[in-house]
Design a protein around this nucleic acid. Structure first.
Lengths: 181, 181
DNA sequence: CTATATTTTCAGTATTTACTGAAATAGATG
DNA sequence: CATCTATTTCAGTAAATACTGAAAATATAG
């Protein structure tokens, strides 16, 4: 008979995989609500909760997805800076490893969303003001004014986000303490 | 010959409509990147930049969409609290009016996303910790630990968001000044 | 250079998500 | 209660998005 020990039993391994699979599936679902592709979120979850870097084939197999899909989304994650490519000497394959530090993950996502989504939105808001600068009438003024308010708020928020994103964990916590008073 | 005045000329009205249409279209595109349905974002933009409340028919007509689509998305916006229903006496139709105060818009979106997306994610993270509490082994520990870190961070951020969302404009700006200090 | 392993691309297809239009329901009016 | 107006629902369809699988490109080793 097997003795109880620090090593997991068969049942425990099964349980772990069950919970992990559930986590990955759910995380994928959350991702798609946030405008992130489901598979990308799943791969990110998979790499984040595992102990070692995985190859494309391992990702394909674990999630049951095609090579093309795995490849595209892995590279997309690398593009975000959330995943790094690891090359092991003697091995020809690439392996993929996720950033695990939650604060780093947060700042990366913050910066990337600023760059990809906030900045273009600000540009639109500024263009709209510029284009209607000389127009007269109630309607035109209402439009210009609302757009201006939006622009001021977004660029203000962006500013705060920018500062926060540059902080490292310690200083960020000190700042948070102030906010939480 | 028409004299120049505070009233907009024909050309100005055209220009205004052109810029407004561009704004609405672009805002819709941004919305879909953020996991918000395009039409809903467009209707929100339309109501936000206009001077008066619009009926379902006016929304349909302006955006060139079906009644069902207009109806569903208007009610969804009402569900978010970003749009109010106006009933004019003597009129049988409902009219829709958007919240225009940017700080209010921000706090509404903050609260709703917390409720709809962050809270369920936190629940998942907590469940995963609970379910794996007793499992032994390196893999299990890595999983539990990463999930714990995520949970701590998200619930911490949620906390800050919660406080900020409860502030009104003035105090929020004072707080922001500290952060930007 | 040839053989082999790995990555990348992408046309075709599947899945998901959003929209239409019309029918059903609800509300008001005389 | 018959009629008219407005709202709501939803089956069917359209559009957007994501995925597959295989072929092409690239890299490595002998």
């Amino acid at each position: 008979m097997k003795k109880e020990s620090a090593n997991p039993s068969q049942g425990q391994l099964e349980k772990l995989n069950e919970v992990r699979d559930g986590f990955i599936a759910q995380w994928g679902a959350f991702g798609s609500q946030w405008g992130i592709n489901r598979t990308m979120a799943q791969i990110h979850a998979l790499l984040m909760i595992g102990t070692n870097a995985l190859s494309t084939d391992e990702v394909m197999e674990t999630l049951g997805i095609s090579r093309g899909n795995a490849h595209t989304n892995l590279k997309e994650l690398v593009g975000w800076g959330l995943v790094r490519i690891i090359v092991r000497k003697g091995e020809r394959k690439e392996f993929f490893e996720a950033e695990k530090d939650v604060w780093k993950i947060f700042t990366i996502i913050l910066r990337e969303r600023q760059r990809r989504e906030i900045d273009p939105a600000l540009e639109l808001l500024r263009d709209c003001q510029e284009e209607t600068k000389k127009l007269k009438g109630t309607e035109a003024e209402a439009f210009r004014n609302q757009v201006k308010e939006l622009e001021q708020f977004v660029s203000f928020a962006r500013n705060i986000g920018g500062k926060v994103g540059k902080l490292s964990y310690g200083p960020a916590m000190k700042l948070a303490a102030k906010v939480l008073g």
